[in-house]
Design a protein around this nucleic acid. Sequence first.
DNA 1: GAGTTTGAAACT
DNA 2: CAGTTTCAAACTC
Length: 793
Amino acid sequence: MDTPERNQIGTPKAKFEDSPVFNYINSLSPIKPVKSVHITQTFSSLSFASLPSVFTSPHVSAHKESRFLRRHNTSDPSKPESTLASGNKVSANEDAAQLYINSEELREDCVPGVSTGEDSVEPSSEHSKFVIELPRNLKYDCGSPDCDPTRCGTEAHCELEVADLSAPLVPYVQKTSEEGSSNDEGHLQIICQTVQRKEVTGCDWESLISDAADLLIFDSPNGTEAFKGLMQNSLDPVTRFCTSLAPQLTQNDVNDEQNVQVLDIVGSGGQLETEDPSSQYGEASQLERTEQMEGHLNHCMVSSQSEKEDNKVETPMQFNCKPAVLNLQRGLRRRCLDFEMAGARRKSLDNVSNSSSNMLSQSDEKITTNDKQLVPMKPGGESSRCILPGIGLHLNALAKTSKDYKIIKCESLAYDRQLSLPNSTADIHSPTGGQGPGHESFSSASSERDMDVAENGVQLAHDASQEPAFLANEEFNQNSPKKKRRRFEHAGETESCKRCNCKKSKCLKLYCECFAAGVYCIEPCSCQECFNKPIHEDTVLATRKQIESRNPLAFAPKVIRSSDSVPELGEESSKTPASARHKRGCNCKKSSCLKKYCECYQGGVGCSISCRCEGCKNAFGRKDGSFIGTEAELDEEEAEACEKSVAEKHQQKIEIQKNEEQRPDSALPTTPLRLSRQMVSLPFSSKNKPPRSSVFSIGGSSSGLYTSQKLGKPNILRPESKFERHSQTVPEDEMPEILQGDGSPSTGVKTASPNSKRVCPPNSDFGPSPGRRTGRKLILQSIPSFPSLTPQH
DNA sequence: GAGTTTGAAACT
DNA sequence: CAGTTTCAAACTC
């Protein structure tokens, strides 16, 4: 979509840098180096057009409204919205998802107005009412005890959010899954109420801010104090910086000091994130968290929205409209694009609604992931880069990777791209925190990250720090496209690293691997006239929608794993070793299904009845039903793998990876499958790129899936759908089945798909994590993500 | 690295 | 739905 905002993007940035204040700040803050970068990204992200309809799916809207209404309760009972609110409570997860979506929608709606530069904000659309500004929220999680117990609860995470449009400053506490946050809600509510009161009363922003400061918590103990210091003491370089920036940004628009303060907060948050590794994931995580925290959100939300609606007069909260502010906020959010995220979340939420607690915790983790992507992972300048590109579209897929799986290798690239994934992931992650000790490692980087994030904030931090560097290195190092590819292949080979070389498709067609995988193109890509970038988010989303409308499964994994899922196949399907089948089957004529031209082969699955290939010699299984030993072996291996404890699996994967690294020969993809498959030599060996896939498979989000699928054995990735997990809350180990049983949302999608043939749950492949999945499990995982888009259509 | 082959995706 | 074209990956040299 063409939003006016884009234009603004560049400007703000320049302003900041040019401004004396900026310089001053730079001199003061240690963060300098990162800052510049960070800011840039932020703006760029901001520039992104509002999310498309994706988020707007009808489903969401309904839920959203209900929630929003609630919010109003506090602020303005009289309003109709409030009425609604009273009515239903959606599960926290759902709410969160909805909120997220709404925010997106709101943006779109609001953006135009904003772009005009008008101060007055128009709630014109219903959406505006609901606007929640998760994205922009600055969130600092603090595990530190320092946090004010009363408000945050010792363990609870406090987050300060600024709504985009509504822009109220909403501090809310989040509970981390890990931490018992049973009490957190109470705290959160309190906080929210407090905020609301303030707003209502007179918008005592200062007090709010101070409160917020208290609330703000950094993951790192140190961070907390620092943050507080910032908030309270303008002396802090960061704070100063933010403060200084805010005025500039708002410039004319800003009338109230309050607004300025808000901005400051935001800005500080951003910077903080940048600097503080611990906070890296803050934004994304926050979003998710917010989503998860229904109750919290509701409470918090009330203030901002109610004010807007109630008062069209600009309240401090409304500063949203101001271009500068918007940009900032957006920037924060946009980093995490999510095509699928929204969908994924939705699904997950829907399913999981009940298990809010778990979800919440998970979400937190996931969020973290997002943050990573969004924020420069490392203080080091390089990290910033990674972030930029990434924001991840289809995080879903990646995100999906269950926490369970820890991937050894992650491809930083993928990671970046799919930032959004985390969101979805978050939902999905089992409460356990992914913990499974063993979670399988996926080969896919994204999955790893997700997992890491999910599992432990700490781990995440590590990964983030590491990964970014990794990415940066790769990106910088690679010169030619091909080289880049090769590198990726060799290095991680994970899907995450997908790169394309599109010249005419603008990376907006399925021809583009990146696009097909649901990830943004990044530096390694040698594509021309690429529109598959965060900057063109709107376009990308719109295109995706279009494609999905044409074929709901277009972004679903091509390889479906479980034989179960595909009864249609009948004998063959069951016969196939992998139990995985290509969604639609191939149509090879000259390659005999022995080359990667063949999608089945590429995916590491045998050809099935659905295939129209000629002279099929697919090593993984011929159309006629004959199988090759390798496949069988693979299956067995997979089964074994499943049996193994997660930990073991994880180790194995690691080992495998090592092995692979050591021996280039091994074709085995890094993906989790490898573990099981190690023994078998995959055809892929040629390039090492294992089936690309691996990485993303997680993707639950629709798009993300592809990769994994391609890999072929997608199983690995299967991250299984977090969604599924969430929904069922099934034990990690059991994930695979979940898919089957539940009727995961994904199914719905499947059915829709035109390709009725094998539509079965594309996701299935990934579904079960390597360990868990027995080999044949179906996985719907990916499906969920897709739906998001589809429904909207 | 350039050119060819291949088959999916897109189009008609 | 089938046929054709377009496209980019996979492959070869």
